[in-house]
């Protein structure tokens, strides 16, 4: 109704302050600002006394070659993430359809597979593709040694995301579709899925964050992604702290952007993020 009632919950916990409260908040703000600044100063000091602020650790970032090499790594990361994401999308959709097919054994199988991929660490799956195909005499390129496990891990989660989307489609629509004589399959294909997909697009985008994170163990299979290329630079420049920090910031910014995009899409299409 009024502007004052659309405030966020964390502001709603507090009422409009009186003069005493305002003074108290002002003092608290100043004290906490000092504490935060002291903490930052302590961190900077630790860098200083350990010599980590020395130019030799940071000058490499002024070189074009450093960024080109990291950029190549980033391309590797993007390639794996997008491929794994695409595979997971298809696989997740199939797992969901199987689970909701109404065919008992198929549904049970899909459920077990979904829960399995959701319940094991992606690292375990990566070790699996690192060791087992080789033991069976299969020579798998490192790209797929990384992409397949990341895709499998994500497919379990995506199956659940899709299922939440399907469940969010109002029950009445299915009944209406069946009542005008559409078959179960057609109802799913023509009525339910298009809407469900629309509901879950923001969640699908958000899941890309998990995929990107999972790709960072590429070094296990020696695939040249952002992290692996950073490790190469570290051995040649002997600049471990600065490089790892910069890499971490890059990953954080990428994932932050993905999250923002997810929220933006959710806001624009007016759907609530289904989890």
């Amino acid at each position: 109704m009024s502007a004052a009632r659309t405030l966020s919950m964390r502001d709603a916990l507090y009422e409009a302050p009186g003069p005493r409260t305002r003074r108290r908040v002002r003092i608290g703000t100043m004290v906490s600002a000092v504490v935060v600044l002291l903490a930052i100063a302590a961190v900077v000091r630790q860098f200083w006394v350990t010599g980590q602020l020395a130019p030799r650790y940071w000058s490499l970032f002024l070189q074009w070659t450093t960024w080109r090499f990291l950029g190549q790594g980033l391309l590797g990361t993007v390639a794996v993430a997008l491929t794994a994401g695409a595979i997971a999308l298809v696989l997740g959709l199939l797992l969901m359809l199987g689970r909701m097919s109404g065919v008992r054994p198929l549904a049970a199988l899909c459920r077990v597979v979904t829960d399995f991929f959701r319940g094991v660490p992606s690292l375990l799956l990566i070790y699996f593709f690192f060791f087992v195909p080789a033991q069976l005499g299969l020579k798998l390129p490192s790209f797929w040694m990384l992409t397949l496990p990341v895709a499998l891990a994500a497919s379990g989660v995506l199956a659940e995301v899709f299922r939440a989307g399907v469940n969010a489609v109002p029950r009445g629509q299915v009944e209406a579709a069946l009542s005008i004589g559409l078959s179960r399959g057609k109802t799913m294909r023509k009525i339910v899925l298009p809407q469900a997909v629309r509901y879950v697009i923001p969640s699908l985008i958000a899941q890309l964050v998990v995929v990107v994170k999972d790709t960072t163990v590429a070094y296990v299979v020696s695939y040249p992604d952002l992290m692996q290329n950073a490790r190469v630079l570290i051995t040649s420049y002997d600049a471990l702290v600065s490089l790892y920090l910069v890499i971490a910031v890059i990953y954080i910014l990428i994932n932050y952007a993905i999250n923002k995009a997810s929220v933006a899409v959710a806001n624009r299409t007016g759907v609530k993020i289904v989890r």
Binding site: A4, E15, A16, P17, G18, P19, R20, T21
Partner: peptide, 20 residues
């Protein structure tokens, strides 16, 4: 529950306190 910019609100002749 809403503050006012100016004027007075009295409950049984006592000014409505601002806080606490």
């Amino acid at each position: 529950l809403e503050t006012i910019d100016s004027g007075q609100i009295l409950i049984e002749g006592e000014l409505l306190p601002q806080e606490g």
